[in-house]
Structure formats: structure tokens, C-alpha cells
Simulated assay, not measured.
Amino acid sequence: MLAVPVLLGVIGAGLWFTGILPRLLGHGTATQVHAVAAAPPVYIDVPEMVANLNGNPRRPSYVKLRAKLEVAGSADTGPVQAAMPRLIDLFQTHLRDMRPEEFRGSAGTYRLREELIARATLVAAPAHIQDVLFEELLVQ
């Protein structure tokens, strides 16, 4: 006897939270969600960089990096191109500060990517850098 009101309450709550009951009662208007077509990303080449790593002075290590910057649209390419000398300087400085052990594994590559995105976002301030894509990353 107690199960019937509990069952009706559960069914009513389910219909209410799924939005069926408010529409049947006329409490809300159906909203349509329009999908906005996103513009395809634009890729900007970063010139190839070779930097010596901070490590054993007897046996120097080097890193070679070729990358692309992914920006949201073509409107962001101008500020990024204008800031490219500063970007290269910041990337080179960061690479020279790293040790060869920091590049090991996918976690090392992920940390490098996140650090480069943060630096690029600071330098190309009005533009939004979505990602840094590595074309070539060699550590010797």
C-alpha cells in the first residue's frame, strides 16, 4: 500500500527532471539548440630550432624542434606572426633551460607542449593559441 505513492512520486520526478512533464503542463517553451559551425583552425609554422640542453658539460645534448601553432581562426594569424621573433626567443630560452631527462616519455612531451602553449599565449596576447603541434622533436 505504501509502495504505490512512492512509485508514483518516483515516476513523476523522473518525468519532471527529463522535461516531459513541464512541457505537458505548458510550463516552459521548447528551446531549439542551433549548432554553430566552427571555423577550421589555422596552423602557423614555427621556424626550426636547435638548442643545446642544460645537462652534462662534458657531453653536450641538443634538441631539434619543428612545430606548428594552432590558432582559432585567420584573425589570429596577424598577432601571432607579429610576435614570432619574441615567440622564438621564449621557446629557445625554455628549451635551453631543460635537461635531456625531461623529454622522456609522453609526459615529458605533454609538459613541454603545455609550457610552450602558456608562453605563446602570453606573447601573442590578443590571439588565442589552442595547441602546439610537434612535427619533429629530436633529442641527441
Rank of each mutant, 00 (worst) to 15 (best):
M1P: 03
L2A: 12
A3E: 11
A3M: 12
P5H: 11
L7S: 13
L7F: 14
L8D: 13
G9D: 01
V10N: 13
I11P: 02
A13Y: 06
L15T: 06
L15S: 09
W16P: 14
T18A: 12
G19L: 09
G19V: 09
I20W: 05
L21H: 02
P22M: 03
P22K: 09
L25N: 02
G26W: 06
H27M: 14
H27I: 03
T29R: 15
A30Q: 15
A30R: 10
T31F: 09
Q32I: 09
V33E: 14
H34E: 15
V36M: 05
V36G: 07
V42S: 04
V42C: 02
Y43G: 09
D45P: 01
V46Y: 00
P47C: 05
P47A: 04
E48T: 12
M49I: 12
V50A: 10
V50D: 07
A51R: 13
N54G: 08
N54T: 11
G55H: 08
N56S: 15
N56K: 11
R58S: 12
R59D: 10
R59L: 13
P60C: 02
P60Q: 04
K64W: 12
L65C: 09
R66T: 06
E70G: 07
V71N: 02
V71E: 00
V71G: 00
D76G: 10
T77P: 02
G78T: 10
V80S: 01
V80I: 08
V80F: 04
Q81F: 00
A82F: 14
A82T: 10
A82R: 08
A83V: 04
M84Y: 07
M84I: 01
P85L: 15
L87F: 03
I88C: 05
I88A: 06
D89N: 13
L90N: 06
F91N: 02
T93F: 06
H94D: 11
H94G: 07
L95Q: 05
L95V: 06
R96M: 15
D97A: 15
M98Q: 15
R99L: 03
F103P: 07
F103S: 10
G105R: 15
G105N: 11
G105Y: 13
S106N: 14
S106V: 14
G108Q: 07
R111L: 12
R111Q: 14
R111I: 05
L112I: 05
R113Q: 12
E114C: 05
E114V: 08
E115H: 01
L116R: 08
I117K: 11
R119I: 08
T121Y: 03
V123W: 05
A125N: 05
A125C: 06
A125V: 08
A127Q: 07
A127G: 13
H128M: 06
I129T: 08
D131R: 00
V132C: 00
L133G: 01
F134W: 13
E135N: 00
E135D: 11
E136P: 03
L137Q: 06
L138W: 14
